[in-house]
Design a protein around this nucleic acid. Structure first.
Length: 297
DNA sequence: TATTTTACCTGAGGGC
DNA sequence: TGCCCTCAGGTAAAAT
């Protein structure tokens, strides 16, 4: 399931292939991949064909490809099962292929960007770029102080140099919800999903249902440190793959699944104390934690 | 206003 | 073999 590390792996793979590339042809196979674009398929294809891309940027789990000479970008979200693949020109259709963009790159020649998505929670769109409220760079990979309008309400992610630790602590102090619920709120902190929330809380020894407002400054700082450590380690290992759902732009899986301490390890011993990892129902999904290391206050 | 719940979606895998 | 059920979960809209 693509969270920040997986999306960043995709961004890094995409950037050299799209920078300076002309979109020679755009084909929408399945309009459900345009749920965040009200203009529809024909308009999407016409608007992009002939335009040039200048790079690949990311904030949290959102990606965008700014268009040369316009204050607009192609915006992407992988949802649950989305993939962005780089393929040689003329390559056969991918399983679950929804949109294909054929590129002419000044040095790499012809290639195709394929958006494939089994569960269709992901999407591509064209969106206008608006100024950031703090005048800092919009995200990783775009130094300009601009961000797609539909991403503007998403908080910066903890690997963003402009992430505000103090504001994060203040936000937590105002929240009456459990801390895990707040970590999944992309308007408070972005990029963290169910897997890395469980892993970060395990590392920081915090129970997922601990009321956010009761966390001490020290505990919040420890949590933030562990979130960054977990995300960076996952990024270094190419992301987390359980099956064919998440892959990089070349279709390869990541290795971080081997490094998980809590997520998906129900009944297995906690790597720190040996107690069986517990799984509790949480928001129509699951929380995994060590009932001994992560005591509820 | 703040918080919680639900809808969206489809294939994999288990039980029978 | 095949049918039915459960599960995976990010986002935004709807409900409380």
């Amino acid at each position: 399931m693509p969270e920040l590390p997986e999306v960043e792996v995709v961004r890094r793979g995409l950037e050299p292939a799209v920078r300076g590339a002309l979109m020679a042809a755009v084909t929408v196979h399945d309009e459900r991949a345009l749920t965040r674009y009200p203009g529809g398929a024909a308009d999407f294809e016409a608007a992009l064909t002939g335009a040039r891309l200048v790079g690949a940027a990311r904030r949290g789990k959102f990606l965008w490809l700014p268009i040369d000479g316009e204050e607009r970008a192609v915006v992407g979200h992988l949802g649950m099962s989305g993939q962005i693949l780089l393929r040689p020109a003329g390559a056969g259709p991918e399983r679950f292929e929804r949109i294909r963009i054929d590129l002419e790159h000044p040095s790499l020649g012809e290639l195709s960007v394929v958006f494939a998505d089994q569960r269709t929670f992901g999407s591509l769109a064209i969106d206008r770029l608006v100024p950031t409220v703090d005048s800092r760079a919009g995200g990783v990979g775009d130094a300009a102080p601009r961000v797609p309008a539909q991403v503007a309400h998403i908080a910066r992610d903890p690997l963003d140099p402009a992430f505000d630790d103090v504001a994060f602590r203040r936000a937590l102090a105002r929240k009456r919800s459990g801390v895990k619920r707040v970590l999944l709120d992309q308007t408070v902190i972005s990029g963290v999903g169910n897997i890395y929330a469980d892993e970060s809380l395990w590392a920081a020894r915090i129970h997922p249902e601990t009321a956010a407002e009761t966390l001490s400054t020290r505990a919040v700082n420890r949590l933030l440190t562990e979130i960054r450590a977990v995300l960076e380690k996952a990024l270094a290992e190419g992301g987390t793959s359980f099956d064919a759902q998440y892959v990089n732009v070349n279709g390869q899986a990541g290795y971080f699944a081997h490094s998980l301490n809590a997520y998906g390890r129900t009944g297995l011993p906690c790597p720190r104390c040996g107690t069986s990892i517990r799984r509790d129902a949480f928001m129509n999904r699951s929380s995994h934690f060590c009932p001994r290391c992560q005591r509820r206050r």
